[in-house]
Design a protein around this nucleic acid. Structure first.
Lengths: 144, 144
DNA sequence: GCAGAAATTTAAATGAGTAACAGGAATTTG
DNA sequence: CAAATTCCTGTTACTCATTTAAATTTCTGC
């Protein structure tokens, strides 16, 4: 969080109240939050935000690399290491809803190569693996 | 299309009128179609379908591996080789909107491995690369 | 303090997807 | 063939997600 502030300072962009509020919620929550989750939670603290407020804040955070959007579940997570731009991968557990962000070197290389054969220039890769996390796998085998 | 029919026959599932209509539209269109695009187009031929009709047909096609959903743009494409289940990757051009489906061996391996380190079991990988296709890249450099 | 830019609020519309329930066609089973 | 079951379709209405447009406020540099 302090890191986020100093980053914005360096870049000369403003981390305003609602932007900070949204980022805080995302970082505190272990699970990804949808835009409407954020809306509901912020209704209690800030002065009655409407959808555009949230979406603008989210757009800002995404641009600055402070948050990520998970396309396959329409939800957002805070980024844990926003200091360098990066293309992460997300492991999304369908049972408990938790998400792990990883950055696999060889996977990134493969991604780069995948398009090259046909001259495709990748700008933003979306890699989201839907499945079951270690904890939930263990719970399942226990039950049987 | 004939392939789709014989596949459904083998599996003992029914490729009904509206399912076939949706699949035809997807296969004919070079670009992905959103559920509402399909809705508009089918309004002219079929008898006034409502959203659930489309979504049910799409669900069926997805289950049978006859179509794919592109999560990052909320659109659907017909699958070109539905005979074996597979985990494809999609290259989506942000300029012209065209989509190429590829299946990269080493990429698939990397995907498998990415989760293993932390015991994550991948069920359905979503890999969509947003970028610029060869044609559109060429057009851009021409202009400058 | 003031002009201009950036950010926010408000209201309203569109796009995406789902729930619930009633009605029909098709296939099985007696 | 008729009854029972299942699967597919139609309709209405709703929720969630996202964007547009316009009016207003807040901030920053001069």
């Amino acid at each position: 969080m302090a890191l986020a502030e100093s980053l914005c300072d360096e870049r000369g962009v403003r981390l305003t109240l609602q932007r900070k509020a949204v980022l805080e919620l995302l970082l505190e929550s272990e699970k990804p939050l949808s835009a409407y989750d954020l809306l509901d939670q912020l209704r209690q603290t800030l002065n009655k935000p409407a959808p555009p407020t949230i979406y603008r804040a989210l757009d800002f955070l995404l641009e600055q690399g402070l948050a990520h959007k998970l396309e396959s579940i329409h939800a957002y997570v805070g980024c844990l290491h926003p200091e360098h731009p990066h293309a992460g991968q997300f492991l999304i557990c369908g049972d408990c809803g938790e998400v792990a962000e990883v950055e696999d070197k060889s996977l990134n290389e493969s991604l780069d190569n995948a398009g090259k054969a046909i001259g495709f220039k990748t700008i933003h890769p979306v890699v989201e693996l839907m499945g079951t996390c270690a904890d939930c796998s263990a719970k399942k085998t226990e039950q049987n």
